[in-house]
Design a protein around this nucleic acid. Structure first.
Lengths: 206, 206
DNA sequence: GTCTATAGAATGATAGAC
DNA sequence: GTCTATCATTCTATAGAC
């Protein structure tokens, strides 16, 4: 749109600063918890006064919003990576991979998990744009799960509960370990072996 | 120890006030979230100035601590109630009852669930006395679970993850409904039917 | 775009009169 | 045991100079 090279350069510089602020915000919440994000300290961290941050984000919640969107983009990208053609033949493996991938995503960054999958920030609501990114991520995950043979709502609900439960216990009670993570395969196999998971097995065989 | 009837009466009065403050605190966090407990508002609620609360609790965290202990006492009492002799004969039912009872305890009061089973209050650590109550509650629950046939650590870990996962999804995504709660039976049966749950079945039959 | 200055409001907690 | 007065912070956010 803009034929002005200076405009492009300025815009690029601005994008860099925006990204730098968000990166510093991730650092901060990793250290002080999700609620421990303070404009003053965030300003210190990127080398400006807290008030100057308002040139980039209209409010603190806009920063959470940017983190929220970035988090779901990362989630989509992370789950994309399980689309490995080598495992398409085996009916059990894709589900296991999917499950491990999900639990890993959660345990790698507990604060991100909290921001994306739990609701613990008092006044924060994601913007429509960010929420759209989240919805798309969920839809992708649902489709991939369907490819693994888990289709009906009750089964996918149980799947979700099991995996978030495992991730949550892992994060809360054995951070850095694998006491719950190593139960992922067993949980997945349990669900795949359940007759209720495949209510139409007979017709599927035809 | 004190033979002074006035002392007893004063002590009783004090206990009443302590209980009243904690009850008001539960009300407050139910309305404004776990972090939304403010000494000023709490004072208003019990009809005294915020500063006067410090005659009863040395700090805000001491109030959280009292709630924590009360919560685990409630948990023990709640799980005791499943000790129904009528169901001891059926090997499947005690586990189902136990599971339902647990999930109900969580969903009935989400804020209490958050205080007891998640770690979301920044500076709060339970006191040794409160923690002892929590440990005893866990030990009781573990024994009851063992009576239901779930004994090895991996299985009880999976049990915990499944049920907290179901409770969490229920609270977060369908408050007041039963979309996840109605999956409890299926989850329990899945675990009971799993061969890995009874690694020593042969010798048990002897 | 960044700064200083500052508003405006909330917080948890203490000291000391009564 | 409750009060008034107050401290000492923290916080988000705005106004306006440069």
């Amino acid at each position: 749109m803009s034929g002005n090279p200076n405009g492009d350069r300025r815009s690029a510089r601005r994008q860099e600063t925006l990204a730098e602020i968000v990166a510093a915000a991730w650092e901060m919440v990793a250290e002080h918890g999700l609620a421990g994000l303070s404009m003053r300290d965030l300003g210190d961290r990127v080398g400006m006064r807290a008030q100057s941050l308002y040139s980039y984000f209209a409010s603190k919640n806009k920063i959470y919003d940017a983190m929220f969107m970035e988090g779901y983009q990362a989630f989509s990208a992370w789950m994309e990576a399980t689309d490995d053609p080598r495992f398409r033949a085996d009916p059990a493996r894709p589900a296991r991979l999917l499950a491990h991938r999900f639990v890993e995503f959660c345990t790698i960054d507990p604060v991100r998990y909290q921001l994306l999958f739990q609701r613990t920030i008092p006044g924060f609501e994601p913007s429509p744009e960010s929420y759209a990114v989240a919805l798309k991520a969920y839809e992708n995950a649902r489709e991939r799960l369907a490819d693994s043979g888990l289709r009906d709502q009750e089964t996918t609900d149980l799947w979700t509960a099991m995996l978030t439960g495992l991730a949550d216990q892992q994060i809360s009670n054995d951070p850095g370990g694998d006491r719950w993570e190593r139960l992922v395969d067993r949980a997945v196999d349990l669900l795949l072996a359940d007759p209720q998971t495949h209510p139409h097995t007979e017709s599927d065989k035809a």
